[in-house]
Nucleic acid binder design. Sequence first.
DNA 1: GATAACAGAATGAACATTCATTCCTTGTTG
DNA 2: CAACAAGGAATGAATGTTCATTCTGTTATC
Lengths: 190, 190
Amino acid sequence: MKEALVDKRSAALKATLALISEQGFHGTPMSQIAERANIGIGTIYRYFKNKEDLINALYIEVKKRMAEHIFNHSFKDTPVEAQLKQYLIQFIRFSIEHPQELNFTEQYENSPLITEETRAEAMRVLEPLMTLFQRAVEQRLLKAMPIEMLVAMLGGSAIALAKLYLSDQKRLDEHTLEAGVSAIWDLIKK
Amino acid sequence: MKEALVDKRSAALKATLALISEQGFHGTPMSQIAERANIGIGTIYRYFKNKEDLINALYIEVKKRMAEHIFNHSFKDTPVEAQLKQYLIQFIRFSIEHPQELNFTEQYENSPLITEETRAEAMRVLEPLMTLFQRAVEQRLLKAMPIEMLVAMLGGSAIALAKLYLSDQKRLDEHTLEAGVSAIWDLIKK
DNA sequence: GATAACAGAATGAACATTCATTCCTTGTTG
DNA sequence: CAACAAGGAATGAATGTTCATTCTGTTATC
């Protein structure tokens, strides 16, 4: 029965996400994950080598879901500026609609648990964004500085914006969101 | 003997900072902290109620040191734009010269260990920055959006910039730093 | 010699992981 | 079709380790 296999594995991942986003890595024992997922502790070890492996798999999965959302909800072949703004808006929307995901990834990326390899793997799912940046550079739309610097600052401010509207669960209306995204464009545009 | 008291207490804090910034909270047992600080485990408990208290105290101390650096290395009563840019430059300088501090605070701020109260306390040390923002608003220099949003995005991009130059320990020359800071000003300026 | 500082061994709780056992599905045989 | 195997999936109690905290004895200071 293939069904159950997929079921239990993803139940474990789902429980892990919910618990870690609230309690952190070390606040959430495997026993609690099993309980929340309605599976046995041993079952988790059928699908993941150990706790580290579980968390890593979750991280990659979440990153993929995020990237998928962003790129699937944006029209293609739009002028660079409009395209990038769409990406930003979709990223922030996703983050606000999926607080656990943002919480978890931020925790993990800022912890020493994450490996360079995993970081690189996560970078890879953002490839369309990097391609867009290349286009922007070719069209001389961006400030004259190292591209990683522009990407880093853009990412940092977008995440900060999303986090702000998660903590104060102030409503982020469409207009304010657009204003924020425009500001971020000003950050990188020539 | 007040001397030794200060000595051992700060030795504990120093060791905690170094170890946690490399190994994370849960990768660093109290025993290791004691060893590194050349003190007994029991001694740590003379100065801190428990591990949580130790980490919290360290966090506040680091934040204070950071704020002190920023505000002491900036001239006062300068026009808003120049003043803010100075703050940003000093923040990034401090972060690059004190990688452990940035690592540690980022870890802590993104973990569920930190309390709202501690967050508020940390905010308080940045009071001069908030005052400057108020001045900027009065002079209508900033984009028309909630001030917390501007602060958040500014902080996010500055931290991202500092982190970038920590990971790739690429040299961040004066010129590039200025360019980055100028970009961040564009992010918030009207 | 009294008081405070210090040290590190002892304690006990918590936890990740293992593994012997049970359960369930599917296939096989008469 | 009923009875029965076989094999993989699932389980959770048991294990061994790690670690925060406490306790007890020692050393320094006045």
